[in-house]
């Protein structure tokens, strides 16, 4: 694979997707320290929000240690060069949350829908574009449908005003060829001024390989997280990815040793559990299940005595999508009844 001379914008997820792995309990101090470390390392973009995006604070997804507004107000003013982004899932967050984030100094908004439901993003994408924000359409669980369907949905988001489209492997299910097919078609068919991005999860250990495939197929933005801190087995570990890209001659503008130190000195010590491929996170990738279901399934296992792996396999079989965390306890109760 020859990626020599390509330029890629890296986007760190440790303070948003990583919130899942931390049950949304990252402290303001930890958040500021990590963001500052990443900023100094030259990370161009950093996402900060509840794991489920703006307005995600809930019984269903978990109440965070601090509100989105508190996190954003603490982090944004400390940034020297990094841009702060926020995630928004229509159906959970609203345009009111978007406006709040803008007021806090967020310059990039990522409006996320399930990969077949892009038409619920119209009011949010339109509003963000109108406010002059970097506006990203983020198609989740992109493994579930064909590249053609992803393109159809991406076109809707572009029509609403998005300037960048992501194919998002929320379940960490994709193999490099799946990434190539989706990113390649988006790059071929969407206007040149529309950027393409890829967001991976490491559940099958494919984070790095898939992200390389995405760059080769035309993606210019790649998500990952320092030390891999993210839902499931985490996101593409950025310090590793930076080293690989450096070897391959891809420009990222990120200082490799500095980001290694952020991973080792700040992020790893903060982890509640090792974020790695274990039997449960592997099952997410194998069965095609939304990565943030991991800790919910583990808790249901403890409470109801149904194995997390069995729960995750059944959730995959039922075609659950992002946001259906409430289904996990419901299913565990049903399976426990059947077992009794």
């Amino acid at each position: 694979m020859n990626l020599q001379g390509k330029q890629v914008t890296l986007h760190d997820m440790s303070l948003r997707d990583g919130m899942h792995a931390k049950r949304h309990q990252i402290s303001l101090e930890e958040m500021v320290n990590i963001a500052t470390g990443l900023d100094q390392a030259g990370m161009p973009m950093i996402e900060v929000t509840h794991g489920d995006g703006l307005g995600g604070a809930s019984v269903n997804y978990g109440f965070p240690a601090h509100s989105d507004e508190e996190y954003l107000k603490a982090v944004v003013p400390q940034m020297k060069q990094a841009k702060i982004s926020a995630l928004l899932l229509p159906g959970i967050g609203t345009v009111d949350h978007l406006n709040m984030a803008k007021d806090c100094g967020v310059t990039s908004i990522r409006v996320a829908t399930h990969c077949t439901e892009a038409d619920v993003s119209q009011q949010h994408i339109t509003q963000a574009a109108k406010m002059g924000m970097d506006t990203v359409g983020f198609l989740m669980m992109a493994h579930m449908v064909s590249p053609e369907k992803i393109l159809e949905q991406a076109k809707l988001m572009v029509d609403y005003g998005a300037n960048c489209i992501y194919a998002t492997d929320s379940a960490g299910y994709m193999l490099p060829d799946d990434v190539t097919a989706r990113i390649g078609l988006l790059r071929k068919e969407l206007p040149k001024n529309i950027e393409i991005g890829f967001h991976g999860h490491h559940n099958l250990g494919m984070g790095i390989a898939n992200s390389l495939a995405a760059i080769e197929a035309g993606a210019s933005r790649i998500d990952g997280s320092v030390a891999g801190l993210g839902a499931g087995a985490g996101n593409t570990p950025l310090e590793v990815f930076c080293a690989v890209l450096d070897r391959m001659g891809v420009e990222t503008g990120v200082d490799l040793f500095k980001i290694m130190d952020v991973a080792e000195d700040l992020v790893v010590p903060m982890m509640d559990h090792p974020v790695r491929v274990d039997r449960n996170s592997l099952t997410l990738g194998y069965a095609g299940v939304y990565s943030s279901f991991l800790l919910f399934a583990k808790r249901a296992e403890e409470k109801y005595g149904i194995s997390a792996r069995d729960l995750l396999v059944e959730l995959g079989r039922r075609g659950t999508v992002g946001g259906q965390e409430d289904m996990i306890e419901d299913l565990a109760l049903t399976m426990a009844k059947e077992k009794a």
């Binding site: 159906g91 399930h114 619920v120 039922r318 659950t320 999508v321």
Partner: peptide
């Protein structure tokens, strides 16, 4: 608080 999730399963 209200949340809506749309699922395309067939």
């Amino acid at each position: 608080k209200a949340i809506i999730v749309i699922n395309p399963a067939e």
